Computed example of a mutant assay.
Amino acid sequence: MLKRLALALLIIVAGSAVTAKTGYYRWVDDNGQPHFTQKPPLDRPSTFIPTGRGYSDDSVNPPYPPKVPAKRADSGTEPAPEKPEKNKEFEVLPDKDPARCEQARKALQNFSRGQRVRVKDDNGEYRVLDSEEQSEQMKKAQEAVDIYC
């Protein structure tokens, strides 16, 4: 019996806490100074200002007018010409690819060791890359690592 009474009392107290209004009171003193308190004053009129959570209410927070830069006194009625927007180009990078990443890292490692690298030319014969070609291939391998890894 006592447990049921305690449970009922707990539900009533929790329910009243959930349904309680949240906000503050605004009132003005004898000097015209506004004050904000959580409890209304007993001897003067006050206005309850509700506070909400999670969203804004346009009736409480009216939308602000758009910000327009002030005109200078010496400026004419014509607005200043707009500056042309710079050509913005965006680089689209491919998705990370573990297989290509591993291949590029191995190639970069081989070039950094100073190993001789043979490539097949147009005739189907193998030839060894000279130092300039190796440095160029090493740069390409580094770019591939940056892209795919």
Rank of each mutant, 00 (worst) to 15 (best):
A6K: 11
L9V: 11
I12E: 01
V13G: 05
G15I: 02
A17R: 09
A17N: 04
V18T: 09
V18E: 04
T19Q: 11
T19G: 02
A20R: 11
K21R: 06
K21E: 14
T22W: 06
R26A: 07
P34K: 10
P34C: 01
H35I: 03
T37A: 12
P41I: 02
P41E: 05
L42A: 13
P45F: 01
S46P: 00
S46K: 04
P50K: 09
G52T: 04
G54M: 05
D57R: 14
N61H: 08
N61K: 09
N61W: 08
P62I: 02
P62C: 03
P63N: 07
P63D: 14
Y64L: 06
K67S: 08
A70Q: 14
R72L: 11
A73H: 14
A73I: 07
S75V: 07
G76S: 10
T77C: 06
E78W: 11
E78K: 14
E78Q: 10
K86T: 08
K86I: 01
N87T: 13
K88D: 07
V92R: 15
L93R: 15
P94E: 01
P94F: 00
D95C: 00
K96S: 04
D97I: 04
A99Y: 08
Q103T: 05
R105D: 00
K106L: 12
Q109T: 07
Q109H: 10
F111S: 01
S112I: 12
G114C: 04
G114M: 03
G114T: 05
V119W: 13
V119G: 05
V119K: 12
D121V: 03
D122G: 06
G124W: 01
E125T: 08
R127V: 05
V128Q: 09
V128G: 05
L129N: 10
D130T: 04
S131T: 14
S131N: 14
S131F: 02
E132M: 09
E132D: 13
E132A: 13
E132T: 15
Q134A: 14
Q134K: 15
E136D: 12
E136A: 15
K140I: 10
K140F: 06
K140N: 09
E143F: 10
A144I: 02
Y148K: 03
Y148F: 15
